[in-house]
Design a binder for these strands. Structure first.
Lengths: 156, 156
DNA sequence: GTACTTGCAAATAATTTGCAAATAT
DNA sequence: ATATTTGCAAATTATTTGCAAGTAC
């Protein structure tokens, strides 16, 4: 999450022939600094702190183009599938905290093997994959335990 | 995809204290015979062939309760995340054809190991996962090749 | 200067809620 | 008999489109 990452994403837009407008820079920035995945509405909300004229429609349109360029990815929770994160690395493997929403990435060993086996067995040609682990991050686990303790104290 | 599977799902509803209504039986049946994942609107459309008074709202509500009971699962395509399939087995691993929409399941060897490693490394407690492979089924691969051949014949 | 982009308003699509009538047990 | 469930209409929410004004290059 460095400044140069941001530059890189900006130049990817430029290379593809898109103009580097204030709205797009704002959206890039918001996605970039977000440690968790964000809905279009949330991106809009945060973006207006930097650029108060930003329109929600522009957020939708920009997310579309950025998806096409592979600069952002959709995050598929068990329920919510409409959040986005910026593609920092090329790994497509998200670890999603179902309490605080934090999204981190993990390296997924052995997936290539699995894909190979499945292709052999089924005749499928696999071109994409969605792999997400959903659970509770370390911090939230601690807070949940705290909460239980507090509750017990109150109840008794 | 047998008749007794259907019975089983029906009795799961009953056990959870839900009534076995005509609408619910219809929705179960549609999901059950569907080889591919279906959107709420598609389920409604197919369901009305069996029960013409079926309401779309009921489809939404029934899908909610069936999700809660684990009788259906959402299928997360790269774009579309609002389709459902019935949970025949307990595997949560879908192989999705991006051309014809067919959903099949595959056995996912080695995932437990991966989850274990990630938990160790990150302190995350993983409780759910979404693993989907997206690509082209064998039949669609053949048809694509056919199509190219035909096109070439036409062009030349 | 000009083509691309924006933001608004309005249109469309998707999902949820309130409630009287219907029905499963 | 009665509590649950339904289906309709209406409300809400999410997303897309048309278009004149604005802006990056």
């Amino acid at each position: 999450v460095t400044e140069s990452d941001l530059q890189q994403m900006a130049s990817a837009l430029r290379k593809a022939g898109y103009r580097l407008t204030r709205a797009r820079k704002t959206i890039l920035r918001v996605l970039h600094e977000g440690e968790k995945s964000l809905s279009p509405a949330e991106i809009w909300e945060r973006g207006r702190l930097y650029y108060d004229k930003l329109g929600l429609v522009t957020v939708y349109r920009t997310l579309d183009t950025m998806m096409q360029l592979g600069l952002v990815q959709r995050v598929h929770g068990v329920h919510n599938c409409h959040n986005y994160v910026s593609t920092e690395q090329r790994t497509r493997h998200h670890l999603v905290c179902q309490r605080c929403g934090q999204v981190s990435e993990f390296t997924c060993h052995g997936l290539e093997n699995l894909i190979e086996v499945v292709q052999q067995e089924t005749g499928f040609a696999v071109s994409e994959h969605v792999v997400e682990l959903i659970g509770f991050c370390a911090a939230c686990q601690r807070q949940i335990i705290e909460g239980q303790r507090t509750q017990r104290e109150v109840t008794e």
